[in-house]
Simulated scan of single mutants.
Amino acid sequence: MTKKEIMKKAVALAKKMIGDWIARMALALKMVWAEVKEKMKKAFPALKGTAKQVAWANDIREKAVAALSEMVKEYAAKLDSGEYWSDKDHAYRSEKKTHLFEAFDALLNVEESKVWIELFGVNHAVSRQGVDRWTLVNSFAQDWLRAKFNRRRLADSFSKRMGVY
């Protein structure tokens, strides 16, 4: 669910409530975000490792997946529109999009705490201060897409385009 969809759902919920608009919106946003977080937790497999590793990896996974899912959706939409790799045909762009979703789904299904910590925790892509977008994108692109899936061109393109903000 995108932030735009979350906001639309919160506004619809707040309109059904009675009272001060700001209070209604605050409550509606809390309710919608709680629902989104619950859905995300149910979708993930349980992590394996020591208690400290699992706690750290869960925190990393929650923040990393929230940020990466938005970037993957944005990148896929730009592939569909032909904004990225415009010189290639639609079949090529569709293949790249499929590879990206396969790699992202594989990341979501990783059960080892160690993998999440090594990918996004040790390099401080995800920390208590938040998410470092550039480091997160490069870790996903270079250490996951390139190293695990041998998708060099896709990794370089994703890193170059999504790391800039």
Rank of each mutant, 00 (worst) to 15 (best):
V36N: 02
K37L: 14
E38V: 01
K39L: 08
K41W: 03
K42V: 03
F44S: 12
P45E: 07
P45Q: 10
A46K: 15
A46Y: 01
A46T: 04
K48N: 10
K48W: 05
G49Y: 09
T50H: 01
T50V: 06
K52G: 03
W56T: 13
A57E: 04
N58H: 09
N58W: 00
D59A: 13
I60P: 10
A64N: 04
A66G: 03
A67Q: 08
L68C: 02
S69T: 09
S69G: 05
S69E: 15
E70C: 01
V72Y: 01
K73D: 12
E74M: 02
A76W: 01
A77S: 12
A77W: 02
A77C: 00
D80E: 15
D80C: 01
S81H: 07
G82C: 02
E83K: 13
Y84Q: 02
W85R: 07
D87I: 07
D87T: 14
D89I: 05
A91K: 14
A91D: 14
Y92H: 08
Y92K: 06
Y92E: 07
S94I: 08
E95T: 13
E95L: 13
K97V: 05
T98P: 00
H99N: 14
H99M: 01
L100F: 02
L100K: 07
F101M: 06
F101C: 00
F101K: 10
A103T: 03
A103V: 08
F104A: 06
L107Y: 07
L107F: 11
L108M: 14
N109L: 13
E112S: 15
S113N: 12
V115P: 04
I117S: 08
I117A: 08
F120C: 11
G121D: 06
V122S: 09
N123H: 05
N123F: 03
N123A: 04
H124E: 14
H124C: 02
H124V: 08
A125T: 08
A125N: 03
V126I: 15
R128W: 03
R128C: 01
R128V: 06
R128L: 04
Q129I: 05
G130M: 09
G130S: 09
G130P: 02
V131Q: 03
V131I: 15
V131H: 06
D132G: 02
R133E: 11
R133N: 08
W134S: 14
